[in-house]
Design a protein around this nucleic acid. Sequence first.
DNA 1: TGTAGCATGTAAGCCGTTACATGATTGA
DNA 2: TCAATCATGTAACGGCTTACATGCTACA
Lengths: 193, 193
Amino acid sequence: MSQDLPTTSYALLGLLSFGDRLTGYELKQRSDRTLRFYWVSPAMSQVYTELGRLTERGLVSAHDDTSAPARPTRRYQITATGVRELRDWLGTAPVEFPALKHPIALRLLLGHLVDPHTTQTMLEEYIEALAERRTDLQAVRDSLETNDADPDLFRFPRMVADWGLDYYEGERRMVIELIRRVTGEGMDPSPRS
Amino acid sequence: MSQDLPTTSYALLGLLSFGDRLTGYELKQRSDRTLRFYWVSPAMSQVYTELGRLTERGLVSAHDDTSAPARPTRRYQITATGVRELRDWLGTAPVEFPALKHPIALRLLLGHLVDPHTTQTMLEEYIEALAERRTDLQAVRDSLETNDADPDLFRFPRMVADWGLDYYEGERRMVIELIRRVTGEGMDPSPRS
DNA sequence: TGTAGCATGTAAGCCGTTACATGATTGA
DNA sequence: TCAATCATGTAACGGCTTACATGCTACA
């Protein structure tokens, strides 16, 4: 009942389903470590808006941090209702095909408008950006490896991280291939007589 | 001058940079065959809105189809100014890192909330969806292969299509691996005594 | 002493969607 | 004759961003 939340709401709710209580700030940090790589890490302001909505609907409960200084620090926890609705969503909502916004592919499409060197540089810079991202994600993956009490708690986050790492690796290989094609193809396939 | 259009505007403008005049309807079809796979194929209504804006700014010109019946059929063509601004954008605008919205990865992350069979089914359905997409993209790629007059005109679209096909293939392989992990892992690694 | 990080929110506005409205042409 | 496709647009509104506003705490 009362379905129809945006996916990002369920995503944030999902991040609260690992058994701990987080502040809005911490939830944002967690989404930077997870959602960022395969969904969207919402802006701080959005996280607070979403927590407000989830609280209203009783999917999370807010506990004002006693020992609070002046401004109240709130910790949010998923409720039994929240878990139920999340499970319900996972079980019934149609699963969309992934949506990709890939500015590099878009620019490569328009390669006929710029000189090959610009395209080559763009692809090389993309490889660097990819390496950085990969490093970030590897750090996340490493932190999921060694887990305390429950070794299965992060089993699925591990899989998702491995998926991401594999994607970055495939992307790297293909972009190297594309650089070859941009620089090589149509450039004197065999020396003209 | 007068930068600051949304990327989708430039994308549509770019689709008009291959030397032909299109109606709004045809432009939508072209974006379904190209942008869809690595950007976003805007809704019809958005295409018309965008064409209006581009016309206002003089980046495309509209030619009312004489031999028009009642409702005017307009064909749009990129202008010299349009080409200049597009080149300028390609040369100067910062290149964002790709943004991915991957509902399957998001759901896999929350695998601890559903039974393994549901997750397995989801991944298997994803493989099917992937195969469909791949077929669509392969058809596009094939249509770019044999080109009439200018064999280099679709050189970059070909590269982008190949990139997409490679991505789908990598995705397929990894999802198969993930299914193995979901069904196998933690399931009696060695028969208990 | 001042900067970075922790912490919470409101307001304005952009980008794009779905729903709605309209009508001609082609082919089963 | 009826459905699909071609063809063009407006209105409402959803989801998210950036900019703005506020203030504490820890540390260099």
